[in-house]
Amino acid sequence: MSAILAVDTSRFATSLAVTRAGSPPTVFAPQGPRVHPPKDEIFLVVQALLERSGCALADLDALAVCVGPGSFTGLRIGLAMTKTFAMVGRLPLYALDAVSLEARRVARILGTDLPPRFCVVVPGYGSVTFSGLFTAAEGKLELEGDIRWHGDPEELAASIPEGLTRFVSSESPLDLENAVPVVFTEPSALELARHAGERLEAAVDVPLNRIQPLYLKPFGVGRKARRPEDFRS
């Protein structure tokens, strides 16, 4: 496997991984809900991780980042860090959304037991969830349509076709009806690194300016932000 630094700051627990050919991967993946290194210290964690893997930034072949949806601040930190590293080192940066990343993890755990069509649910902040419908054929996953944002579990339930298996991480704090919990045995950043490795091997070229955070939630929905006419009324 190529030398890749993968960064997933989109979820409750920050996940980082460094992979190198001929060496076991080095990961930072604290256990438990909502475990982040403090936002000010993530660079120290990355630095320590690289040191532990015996790898310098200059030795990397590529970078990988999860673009969300997820924690807004987390996404910005992950994106700003990896894009800067990519810009300075002229390295390819491969991005993957959080729902497709989760689908890849589900597929890896289930192997041949994976249904041909399924739904993946990723918990967001509070009662918010994100979901995506996937089809699996010949070892490939295809996202049907767009990733969707749901304000509450009822909205989520209503959006998923009847009878479709819905997978959710066993670490999800949400109690989702009819969802199949999946126990992931490795951190998300490792799957992210695999995705980047595949893209690198296929010599996929993605311009840096096309990699942006995926916020999904329309700006201002359900928030305090109001226009002047709201005050007047």
């Binding site: 630095q47 930034l57 700003a80 860090m81 800067t84 590293f85 080192g89």
Partner: peptide, 18 residues
């Protein structure tokens, strides 16, 4: 805070990478 974080994160990444 959110705005400062963007500039500081890019600054830190530049410092580390360079």
């Amino acid at each position: 805070i959110g705005s400062l974080l963007v500039g500081v994160t890019v600054g830190k990444a530049l410092a580390m990478a360079l």
